[in-house]
């Protein structure tokens, strides 16, 4: 068994709103081993982004609140860690990249200054050294002509190039874990392929782990070793990637995989897609039982009474379903 770098146990991150408490993350268990890529998939509002941001404590409190659970980073719980120390962890150990690279870069500073800032947080460097380091980082993420581009502002870069800048910034602190929150969702497919390849290259070079948050099953299949499927604030299935796609056990996972049109299958042309009826339940008053029961074609009486716990069904394969 590989070493667990990050382990989340029973995490509940709730938000207080005018309408009541939104249980965005409601009892999530997952772990990431050293050197692996874990995919966290699910649809909008399933709590995958809140889970990721909880790890770095990037949740505004209030309205957010850690209701229960532990976030063990190399065995140490991050929830009680004070803000100052958390800054150090964010600068040196865990990095994050976001979906929208334009909104997560500061428009009034050059990209060089922004990368240099991270480098100077990390090591005691002079400004000149830090800028030289930034040029190196831009070269590492294959930005052409890095010596010149380092003085450019974010708006002078294209979407794909901005995401490269974000990755360069994240890599500057040589993190052990990179949290990538929908890193390619805003990009075109050919650029997406470039960025995914770059992330893989960075992972191999620096030996870090990646937590890849996405809604795209295709991206998961091509980049992750293990996958966690979330639905309405809970983990419903966890499995090695081959098992998840080869033998999905939870009806939600099955539905998710079957609802995607496949370009690689000739017969798929006129086959009807299997849609999952209905839509995601409100997290204000989530159902007591299995959260998927209302949309599940196998739902039985027991399903609406209590949420089934995660059960082991194969090596590393766990499912929260009575079936």
């Amino acid at each position: 068994m590989a070493e667990k770098l990050l382990e989340i146990k029973g995490l509940k991150t709730w938000f207080k709103t005018d309408d009541g408490v939104v249980r965005a993350v409601d009892g999530v268990d997952l772990h990431i081993d050293r050197g692996e890529t874990l995919g966290v998939v699910g649809e909008s509002g399933c709590g995958k982004t809140v889970t990721a941001r909880s790890v770095l404590k990037l949740i505004d409190m209030p309205p957010g609140r850690f209701e229960a659970g532990e976030i063990l980073w190399k065995g140490r719980d991050l929830i009680p860690v004070p803000a100052q120390e958390m800054d150090k962890i964010r600068a040196r150990e865990i990095a994050i990249i976001f979906q929208e690279p334009m909104t997560s870069l500061n428009p009034v500073y050059t990209v060089g200054d922004q990368i240099a800032e991270v480098l100077r947080q990390h090591d005691k460097l002079s400004r000149k050294q830090a800028i030289a380091g930034a040029v190196e980082m831009l070269r590492l993420v294959n930005i052409p002509n890095p010596g010149k581009r380092v003085h450019d502002y974010p708006h002078q870069f294209s979407g794909g190039m901005r995401q490269r800048v974000m990755i360069a910034m994240a890599m500057s602190c040589k993190p052990q874990l990179l949290i990538a929150d929908e890193p390619t969702t805003a990009l075109d497919v050919t650029i997406q392929a470039q960025i995914l390849e770059l992330m893989q290259e960075m992972k191999d070079k620096l030996g870090m782990s990646i937590m890849l948050i996405t809604h795209a099953m295709g991206v998961v299949a091509e980049t992750c070793q293990r996958v966690v499927v979330m639905y309405a604030g809970k983990v419903v299935e966890e499995a090695p990637v081959e098992a998840l796609f080869g033998n999905p056990r939870h009806p939600y996972t099955q539905g998710l995989i079957r609802s995607i049109p496949r370009v690689d299958r000739a017969a798929a042309q006129k086959e009807r897609l299997e849609a999952i009826p209905g839509s995601v339940p409100s997290l204000l008053n989530p159902p007591v039982g299995c959260r998927f029961a209302a949309r599940c074609k196998f739902a039985m009486d027991v399903c609406v009474k209590a949420m089934p716990p995660l059960k082991e069904v194969g090596p590393g394969h766990r499912v929260a379903c009575v079936l």
Binding site: V189, Q192, L196, F245, R262
Partner: peptide, 14 residues
């Protein structure tokens, strides 16, 4: 050709 080859396939065995 390049565009099609960039589409991720939801099957890790492919």
């Amino acid at each position: 050709e390049a565009l099609l080859s960039a589409v991720p396939i939801p099957d890790p065995t492919v």
